[in-house]
Amino acid sequence: MKTLFKKADFLLIAVLCLVCAALFLPRFFGAGKLEAVIYCEGAPFRRVDLSTVKEAYTIWLDAQGVVLKVEPGAIGYESSNCPDKLCVRTGRLTRPGDTAACLPSKTVVVLEGGFFRKGPDVMTY
């Protein structure tokens, strides 16, 4: 517990950076359909094809106290009843793989498209 850097540290950092790059890359090949999936309490609640949205509109999730704003090619939390508003501060999601979550309201919005086009990946308990 004296030295700041040892050899294995560089190896660890290099491996983590590589994993990171591998996870990031697919996001830059998300051509074609861009679909937002809105999850409520762990189940996909609604899918919105953002590539066909012409005019902005809002989605009210009354039970969760959440309002989502849908725009051409983007989606985001507009307002929420949660205490910390982290979901609103996440801003607009525009790329496949982009994620916004609101833990208190148990809602998540994920963009699928390109490499991220897959079936429902819902964990059940």
Binding site: I13, L16, C17, V19, C20, L23, F24, V37, Y39, E41, G42, A43, G97, D98, T99, A101, L103, K106, T107, V108, V110, D121, V122, M123, Y125
Partner: peptide
């Protein structure tokens, strides 16, 4: 924890940004 709280593994979309930030 977030995956359990929201009931979906989709929160792992945050993973790459968080990992880079952790380094």
């Amino acid at each position: 924890a977030a995956a359990v709280l929201t009931g979906t593994s989709s929160v792992f979309g945050y993973a790459p940004v968080l990992l880079l930030f952790a380094v």
